[in-house]
Each structure stands twice: as structure tokens, then as C-alpha cells.
């Protein structure tokens, strides 16, 4: 099989290896590192990580699909994850979600045709004190309402 991951990935893993008691503990950092490289995790990449760590690719798939931070499908440039768990829901997250869907013209879980936005639902970002919250790529956007969500989307759109 052709190598999907770069030498940089393997170097980073080498550095992390001594930090953990066994190689299996490397699954999460390896997935993060691979996602940094690819933007998402195709199955060839999962298989390669499995081979590197020495467990069946199925186990990697189980882990990767458990956590919502790992994308098993390609995502747009801006990945918006709106929390819809209890606190955010009580503060109007459902309205925000349907607004975002209308604004971007996509359904939750889809990507816009220009590849700019992916919209998804998140189970608790741990930001209940500042609900409703959204995670945009690696940043938190908190205390949202429809106006601030609109402003954020506009801002990101104009940045390109």
C-alpha cells in the first residue's frame, strides 16, 4: 500500500512515543496529527495508523468515530459546530442551527458547494456558562445569538 502520511507525521509520532506507557495510547494523538495533515481522515489513513500502532484498522475506526473532533468525511474550510446539548438548547441553540442552515443553504452535516463551510451539531462543548456556544475550527465562539452568528459568518466569508 502506498504511504498516505508524510515523514513529518512519523517524526511527530516518534517524539510522542516515549510519553505514553504503550503504543496503543498513541491512537488519539496520531489521529489528530493525521487530521492536521489531511483535514479529514480517509480510510486509507486510518488503515495506515492502525498498521503503525499495531492494532486492527477496525479499532482505529471505532475510536475515530467515537469522538466528534475527528472528521471521517471531508469538511469545508470553516467547520462550524453548534452545540445543541441541554444548556445551549435552553438558550436557543436550535434556532441558531436552523438560522445557520438557512443562511448557508445547507443542512446540518453538509458542506457548502464552494467548500467554505461545513455545519454540524455538537454534543456539549463544555461551555455551558457561555451558552449557546459554537466551535469554529479550533476557536470557540460563545454567547451567540442570531445577530452575532450572522456577523461571524459574514466576517469569515469576507476574509477569503
Amino acid at each position: 500500500m502506498e504511504k498516505q502520511l508524510s515523514n513529518k507525521f512519523y517524526e511527530a509520532m516518534k517524539k510522542l512515543e516515549p510519553r505514553y506507557p504503550n503504543k496503543k495510547a498513541l491512537i488519539l494523538p496520531a489521529l489528530h496529527e493525521a487530521q492536521k495533515e489531511w483535514g479529514w481522515l480517509p480510510k486509507e489513513v486510518l488503515a495506515e495508523i492502525g498498521e503503525y500502532i499495531g492494532v486492527h484498522a477496525a479499532q482505529i475506526r471505532e475510536v475515530a468515530s467515537f469522538y466528534t473532533m475527528y472528521n471521517l468525511n471531508p469538511v469545508g474550510k470553516n467547520h462550524l459546530r453548534i452545540c445543541t446539548n441541554v444548556a445551549c438548547c435552553l438558550r436557543g441553540a436550535d434556532d441558531l442551527m436552523s438560522y445557520a442552515e438557512r443562511k448557508l443553504g445547507i443542512k446540518c452535516g453538509e458542506t457548502t458547494s464552494d467548500g467554505m463551510f461545513t455545519l454540524s451539531e455538537e454534543e456539549c462543548l463544555g461551555a455551558c456558562t457561555t451558552a449557546p456556544a459554537m466551535m469554529a475550527n479550533d476557536d470557540y465562539v460563545e454567547n451567540l445569538d442570531i445577530n452575532s452568528l450572522n456577523a461571524y459568518i459574514e466576517k469569515v466569508k469576507n476574509e477569503r
Partner: peptide, 10 residues
């Protein structure tokens, strides 16, 4: 053979 998997959660 680890052929059955649990995908996603909850």
C-alpha cells in the same frame, strides 16, 4: 479477527 466494530457513539 476484529471484524465487528462499534461505529459512532451513544
Amino acid at each position: 479477527i476484529h471484524e465487528m466494530v462499534a461505529i459512532k457513539r451513544g
